[in-house]
Amino acid sequence: MSFNKIHINDEVLKIMVSSVEASYPAEGCGLLFKADDHAGPELKVKAAAVCFNEAKGVSEHYRMDPMEVFKHEENRAKENLSLSGIYHSHPDKPAILSEEDIREMLPGMVYIVFSVLSGKVKDIKGFIKHENVVHYAEVEVQGG
């Protein structure tokens, strides 16, 4: 299954934006969750979890500890939410996927990339890899 549109509400977006701005000039990263019973081609992001960037010292990289990801998954499962995507930031670089991003993409997962220029989020783009091809996924922010 492949999503072609990503809906994010203001509240969840705020969590992501403040986390990637706070980690500037390093990359920030985190996870996106949807409702377990969610279906259809448009993803509705219900929650976001900020993750520790293990590769903070290595400039222009991010890596999450698999056990931390697992703990978030376990906790959110109690709220009937399941992991459906990943977000990360490109400090002073545009919101496009790097070659490394594309190589490391997990099939079916939604990827949101923030461009953070001089400490402020300037752009946001969504991507998904389906059958080894990367597609754009439109990001729509909803109030409330």
């Binding site: 698999p66 990943i86 790097s98």
Partner: peptide
Amino acid sequence: VLLLPVIAGGAPSLAQTE
């Protein structure tokens, strides 16, 4: 036993742009 992903990536090595 857990099967877990490594979630990683990097910024574009050289800048790309619109």
